[in-house]
């Protein structure tokens, strides 16, 4: 009796975790389609990349209930947490440098202010040229 009820509890928890992960993936899909610019789309895209995936993996582990599979799933979560920030950093940097960031939608833009301050400190104008120089 006790064994059966524990496995039932684990199945219910697994079902809840799988539902949560699928809901986060769906929310990411809606956000990716409806949000207005690149950074907002990246924001919604990261929801299933970490939390949604971890929920699905917890659900899968609760359903499988075996040791080796559990370690493989831990490995999946660790790899995803290591690699998705790299991808997000590269995409965000490329988006900023190619002007995909809409300034009017930002609340705070510390990077532009810092870059302007650094250029002023280096004695350069807005294009990165020394003062008085004309770019051909």
């Amino acid at each position: 009796m006790g064994v059966v009820s524990w496995s039932a509890v684990a199945d219910v928890l697994a079902a809840l975790c799988l539902l949560g992960g699928a809901l986060l993936a769906f929310a990411a899909g809606v956000g990716v389609v409806r949000f207005p610019d690149l950074l907002a789309r990246m924001h919604s895209a990261t929801k299933p990349q970490v939390l949604g995936l971890v929920l699905v993996l917890i659900g899968l582990a609760l359903r499988l209930r075996s040791g080796p599979a559990l370690w493989m799933l831990v490995l999946v979560a660790v790899f995803q947490m290591l690699t998705s920030p790299v991808a997000a950093h590269m995409v965000g940097r490329a988006g900023y440098r190619t002007g995909k960031v809409r300034q009017e939608l930002l609340v705070v833009d510390e990077l532009t202010a810092d870059q302007d301050a650094a250029r002023r400190a280096a004695g350069l104008d807005a294009d990165g040229d020394p003062h008085g120089a004309h770019r051909s």
């Binding site: 799988l18 992960g21 699928a22 993936a25 990411a28 899909g29 990716v32 690149l38 789309r41 990246m42 895209a45 299933p48 990349q49 949604g52 995936l53 699905v56 993996l57 659900g59 899968l60 999946v76 995803q80 998705s84 991808a87 995409v91």
Partner: peptide, 17 residues
């Protein structure tokens, strides 16, 4: 790229499901 990342994550979730 961001959209295809979402697609990849959805694929992972589907295989897990």
């Amino acid at each position: 790229t961001v959209a295809l990342d979402v697609l990849t994550t959805t694929l992972v979730a589907f295989v897990g499901l």
